[in-house]
């Protein structure tokens, strides 16, 4: 499975990592993805939009390992899954609670994230995330 991130996603990750409460965010995201394959991620229940077997816009709830708040207070990660290409594109992440916590996203927010991912794919402006080493680098 290839995991790609948009510039926006990397910015959010770096911003969160500077805060002690969210310092393990990249680790948490990689652990979450490492436990699942593309089909699971495509059909995962936190689903916003789906074309069966082709495209899905998903919202994953990823537990914050530095707190014990469980799912309700976890990170929300918005991404696009393209199972045929075996690709997943992470577009945005935010914590639900804490100093950088934010409210629910609206329809237009999700559309903007989906557009951001589409533009990043078209321009080749993506980062590759290596979930084993928990590192990322600009896609060549």
């Amino acid at each position: 499975m290839n995991v790609y991130c948009t510039e926006q996603f990397i910015k959010e990750i770096e911003k969160l990592q500077r805060n002690n409460s969210y310092s393990a965010v990249l680790h948490d995201v990689c652990s979450y993805l490492a436990d699942r394959n593309i089909e699971e991620l495509h059909s995962i229940k936190d689903l916003l939009q789906k074309s069966e077997g082709i495209y899905s816009l998903n919202k994953y709830r990823i537990a914050n390992s530095t707190s014990n708040k469980g799912k309700s207070g976890s990170y929300r990660c918005i991404c696009v899954c393209l199972p045929k290409q075996n690709n997943i594109y992470l577009g945005y992440i935010y914590p639900k609670t804490g100093s950088q916590g934010r409210d629910n996203l609206e329809k237009e927010d999700y559309k903007n994230i989906a557009v951001g991912i589409q533009k990043a794919i078209a321009a080749g402006d993506l980062y590759e995330l290596d979930i084993a080493s928990k590192t990322y680098r600009k896609k060549k």
Partner: peptide
Amino acid sequence: ELLHDREVSLALEEDDEMKNIIQSTLTAA
């Protein structure tokens, strides 16, 4: 939040612009 997401999900399903976004993403990828 689950209730909110349900509404957003249904609205996105009916959204023509979202359908175009999906198509453009598939073309780009």
